[in-house]
């Protein structure tokens, strides 16, 4: 776990942050390439067709550089993800440049999604997403092995159930 800013670790003191699987790195990179390479190729092709001279190479070079930087940052981005199941809420934090921490109380959970896109399936990973009544809630835990994902989902569901009964 990266300790880039101590204050994000101190809150709320007794939290046991759990990381997501490092296998998420290739998944993210593949996802990035799947979008980035066609875009870069398209831009280069357009430059080659309409702008003679050094432009195609320049465009291709820039695109490649951006992709490379993003790919290198992926590792840190993945390592920045963490979640912690506490007694009655779930904490999720992530972000390299912009740090985000979200706190979702179990009694506000509406439903839980477990999903996996083709790249995630290739590396045997899944994403757990919590939904509250608010559309702006940002609570996704990507890159969990399917067993962990299912376990998390079941625990969360059970806790949500218990909390609701307490109401």
């Amino acid at each position: 776990m990266s300790a880039q800013h101590p204050v994000w670790e101190t809150w709320p003191g007794d939290v046991d942050w759990r990381p997501v699987s490092p296998r998420l790195v290739p998944v993210r990179i593949l996802g990035l390439l799947a979008v980035g390479v066609p875009l870069a190729a398209g831009a280069t092709l357009a430059a080659w067709l309409w702008w003679p001279g050094p432009w195609p190479q320049l465009v291709a070079g820039t695109a490649a550089a951006i992709l490379l930087v993003r790919a290198l940052l992926t590792r840190r981005a993945v390592r920045s993800w963490g979640y912690a199941e506490r007694e009655d809420d779930l904490l999720i934090r992530h972000g390299v440049w912009t740090k985000r921490l979200s706190i979702v109380p179990y009694n506000r959970m509406q439903f839980i999604d477990v999903s996996a896109n083709p790249f995630q399936r290739m590396f045997d990973l899944a994403t757990v997403k919590l939904h509250t009544a608010a559309a702006t809630s940002d609570s996704t835990v990507p890159g969990l092995p399917p067993d962990d994902a299912a376990g998390l989902r079941d625990r969360l569901a059970a806790r949500a159930e218990r909390e609701r009964e307490g109401l």
Binding site: T98, K99, R100, S102, I103, T132, A133, S137
Partner: peptide, 24 residues
């Protein structure tokens, strides 16, 4: 419904953060 704290890059340099609350 949920609480979020976010910190952008510039905010990090200035040791600032934004508190969001999410409502239905």
């Amino acid at each position: 419904q949920s609480v979020r704290v976010t910190q952008g890059r510039r905010q990090r340099w200035l040791r600032l953060a934004t508190v969001h609350v999410d409502i239905a």
